[in-house]
């Protein structure tokens, strides 16, 4: 197993924090949409794309991004046509993707980083794209939070309020896929889903309303990300597992103060 670099440069830290905020915000809605496990499974859809990218010596993040965006589209279409829920469709696509990825990737050394995250330096180009994507996700969730709540309450009711739930659903899935892409370098395919869901679960335990849910979720994700970076530096740990250990610790702490209604 490769050991991640001991220090993170400024660009990595900025992008890590923005990625965490995007994950925390989006995760709050993923949790409310009962996509907790779908979040985990979703990230695995990146695997065949990453495997193909490695095979053809292309940036693996680009491969993962393409696979995830195609995956999001397939989930959206199949969900609409078959009437299955997101979790079921993602579950099917996830196992098929994992199998395809495993067949393609072989025994590549980069596999460990792909699975568990292991950051190398970001290029300026990667950094700029990453920051733009993270900001789009953050602004979307903040700006559309009321519409997202209405579509959660009842799709039929949302339609009587002239809200296009199909469009919103597609935008959400696409941004979900992009959030996973953002986190792949930090956490890897196996763990990225957890950065989306654990902070949201922490916030679910502590929050009393939508704004506090979003704020607590984003803050927990940032704490987990930065805490994980520090842990991985001091104890020479793989970055992805270090982040999730911090997130898991925060979740346990949140159980001590579960909101009482």
């Amino acid at each position: 197993m490769t050991i991640p670099m001991d220090n993170f440069d400024k660009l990595s830290i900025i992008l890590a924090v923005l990625t965490a905020v995007a994950s925390g915000l989006l995760g709050s809605f993923a949790l409310m949409r009962r996509m907790a496990l779908a979040g985990d499974a979703f990230s695995h859809i990146a695997l065949p794309g990453i495997a193909l990218a490695l095979l053809f010596h292309v940036n693996p993040i680009i491969g993962g991004a393409v696979a995830l965006i195609i995956g999001a589209f397939i989930i959206w279409r199949v969900e609409k046509l078959s009437g299955l829920n997101t979790e079921a469709v993602t579950g099917v696509l996830f196992t098929v993707s994992l199998a395809l990825g495993a067949l393609t990737i072989g025994q590549d050394h980069e596999l460990v980083d792909t699975l568990f995250g292991g950051i190398s330096k970001f290029s300026v180009y990667e950094f700029i794209i990453g920051v733009i994507v993270a900001l789009i996700i953050i602004i979307f969730v903040i700006y559309r939070r009321h519409a997202l709540v209405l579509s959660l309450i009842s799709k039929d009711l949302a339609k009587t309020a002239h809200l296009s739930t199909e469009k919103l659903e597609w935008q959400f899935l696409l941004l979900f896929a992009l959030t996973v892409v953002l986190g792949l370098k930090f956490l890897g395919v196996l763990l990225m889903g957890s950065l989306i869901i654990i902070p949201a679960a922490i916030a679910r335990n502590l929050a009393h309303n939508l704004n506090s849910l979003l704020i607590i979720s984003a803050l927990s994700a940032v704490l987990a990300m930065v805490g994980g970076m520090i842990l991985s530096t001091y104890f020479a740990l793989q970055l992805g597992p270090a982040i999730i250990i911090v997130a898991g610790g925060l979740f346990v702490l949140s159980l001590l103060r579960v909101r009482s209604i």
């Binding site: 009321h146 209405l150 009842s154 039929d156 009711l157 009587t160 309020a161 929050a207 309303n209």
Partner: peptide, 23 residues
């Protein structure tokens, strides 16, 4: 429209204000 059932769990951290402002 008032549907018979909501699509979400009522125990989520959403206040009545969040609920009404959603529209």
């Amino acid at each position: 429209y008032v549907p018979q059932k909501l699509d979400i769990d009522r125990n989520l951290p959403l206040s009545l204000n969040d609920f009404l402002q959603s529209k």
